[in-house]
Nucleic acid binder design. Structure first.
Lengths: 66, 66
DNA sequence: CCTATAAGTAAAGTAAGCTTTACCTATAGT
DNA sequence: ACTATAGGTAAAGCTTACTTTACTTATAGG
């Protein structure tokens, strides 16, 4: 599972810590997701979607889908 | 997190076992998700989305969103 | 050179997702 | 009444998501 978090963050000039606070997880969790260490839970994916006002499918990409 | 799996299944006349097989999880997992015992992982949500050809946000609903 | 800030990473622990086995209940058909 | 099929549920165990603490590296500004 790939994602666009780093870019979306950059567009807003947010740090990993800023984003972590915004969706209420630890900074390490954001780092791990950006580095593809693991996938976010579905509830967390919804939080990102709401925060960035984007559909989940436009921020997270299932490898199998292509 | 609520979901429309039961309805989507009914529309296709599929059993929980059928759906489980289609997305490659156990029947108990489908049952638990339908009964809101837990949320699916994001990868599993993507599988449902692909299977039913629907955006994730049209099958799963974040309670906080309203 | 020193300091501050951002990012990367690792270890240990808890919590949530998911599996397997197994049993129980409900409904429908014979 | 018996059988088959679908759904509900529970326990034990494994894997993955996430936390906390803590150390490291990179960059930029004084």
């Amino acid at each position: 599972m790939k994602n666009r978090l780093k870019v979306l963050r950059a567009e807003r000039d947010w740090t990993q810590a800023d984003l972590a606070e915004a969706v209420d997880v630890s900074r390490q969790t954001i780092n791990a997701i950006e580095k593809d260490k693991f996938d976010p839970s579905l509830p967390l994916a919804f939080k990102f979607a709401r925060l960035f006002n984007l559909p989940i499918e436009e921020m997270f990409f299932d490898e199998d889908d292509r």
